[in-house]
Structures are given as C-alpha cells and as structure tokens.
Amino acid sequence: MSVLPIEAPARPVERAKPTGMGRILDREAPLAYLLMFPGLFILALFMAYPFGLGVYLSMTDKYVGFANYDFIGFDNFRYLFQDTIFQRTVRNTFVYSFFTVPFKLVLGMGLALVLNNHFHFSRFMRAGLLLPWIVPTAISSLAWLMLYDSVLSPFSILFKNWGLIDSNINFLGSQYNAMAALCLANVWRGVPFFAVSILAGLQAVPPDLHEAAALDGASAWRRFRDVTLPVIRNIVLISTLFSVIWTFADFQLVYVLTKGGPANSTHVFGTYAYQLMGFSDLGTAAAVSVSMFPILAVFAVVLLRYVRAED
C-alpha cells in the first residue's frame, strides 16, 4: 500500500560472523544513514540552506552592492501586494499553469489513445512526438520566437500574401496576444508529457475486459469511460499535478519569448523575481520567489498523497 519502505528484509537466520567495521555496517540504521549522508549533505548545503536564506532575504531590504541592510519583517510582501505588476504576475501565473491544463490533458489523452494502437513506425512516432517535451525549452522556444516575430513570422507573411490580413500579426506586442502566445507554446510543450504518462497507464488496462465489454455491445465511449478511465484515473491526476507544479514555477519559455514584456504584462513569478534581481533589489526579488512557496506546498502535499495511494 505505502510507497516507502514497507517490508523488513527478513534477517538471515544464521551466517558467518564478519568482523570489525563490516559488522557495524551490517546493522541497518547506521548503514542507511551513512549511505544517505553524501546526498543529504549536498541537499542540505545547496537546497535547505538557500531555502532558509531565501526566506530570510525576503524579509530584508538587501540591495546588491550595499553592505548594510536591515530586517524589515513582512514589508516586502506588503509592498508586493500593492504592486500592480506583482498582482498581474500572480494572475498570469495562474492563467499560465491552470487555464492550459484542460488543453494539455485532452490533447495528451487523445495522443495517448492514438499511440496505444499498433501501426507501422509506432515506436518511431512515439519518440518523435515527444520532442517538444524532451528538447531544452530554451531551445524550442527559439522556434516559437521566430514564429511569433513581428516582422518575419511565417504566418504573417503567408496570410498577407494570401490577402487574409493587411498588417502583420502582433503576436507578442500586446498583453492578451502575448499571454495567448505563451499559453499556446506551453500547451505544445506539455501535451507529450501527458501523452506518455497516460500511455503508460493504458498499458495496465486489461485487454480482455475491453473485448468482453465490446461483446456485450458497449460503445467505444462507454468502454473508455467504464473500463479505461478508472484504470488511468490516478495517473491522470498525478501527471496533472506534476504539470501544474512545473508550469507554475516555469521560467525558460516566458524568459525567451517575452522577458515578461510588453510593459511587464506577461511576467510569471520566476521572470519577475529574475528581473528584480537584475535591478539589484534582492529583498523584493526573494519575496517574489518565496511567494510561490505556499501554493507549491499545497500542490506538493496533494501530489504526495496521490503518489502514495497509487498502488
């Protein structure tokens, strides 16, 4: 039932006696902590410590290049809640990570069902259609950067040549266009992840059950709903939560495509924090980062429950 160590490795009844160090390490608890030490040390030094430092920084007025700074409590957060750019950043991040989920989910589910068939080159297609998710986002975003270019976008050029539009489409030039453009690229990148996860879940659907249901005259939709869906339900939930968490904390795609512009209208938490850091305003920048934490923590706890319940 549980995810984590469940069964005690039964102790061997009888064995030759190792000596010295070897015997100490045969006791499980000291050995376990010894083995975990190097990894936990790195995580403590480069994850736990900076996390604490970040929370502390968010409560100071530290600027890069100034040696002196003061502890100012929650003033940075108070400032941010008044800050219209931050308010927009919060809204953008929610749109960016939640509004896109249904699209990724439906398209990913469709792709999984298609790929679950046997056909020529199916292995090849599986690998190929994963590319958007595999390739570094900073790299694939470059393709979108040109597709969205204000002058050289092939869509603008083509549609103008066909006489459909008079002037170039301003993909990244206004807030709504830019958010839509970011969401589209985001959906494009996310679909393969949903597809592969769900595809893995589909392998667990018993084929005889499908055949039996088909023989009983169940329609394709009913078979999907009553046979397939219950089996993949948990994996769908888990991949959704993973996707929301990753997208919520995204940086690359927004950084490459808009850098939060035009006029700070498309920031997400990551890019706004980065921009403030560039302005040397470390305290406020850290506060923007730290603001993500409560929301991420909620998702992480929910995700943990599902992953542990998954059997």
Binding site: L57, A249, S289, F293
Partner: peptide, 25 residues
C-alpha cells in the same frame, strides 16, 4: 519513511524558488 517523503518533496522544489539565495551561496 520520512526520508523517502523528504526526497520526493525535494524533487518538487523548483529552481525558481531557490536561485536568488543560491546565487549568494
């Protein structure tokens, strides 16, 4: 068990949360 949970939660900590203090470290 607790260690396992910690490792899993650590996997969910995004770079955007840590990069500012980590730059100082």
């Amino acid at each position: 068990n607790t260690m396992g949970v910690i490792i899993f939660l650590a996997y969910l900590v995004p770079p955007t949360l840590l990069f500012i203090p980590l730059a100082q470290v």
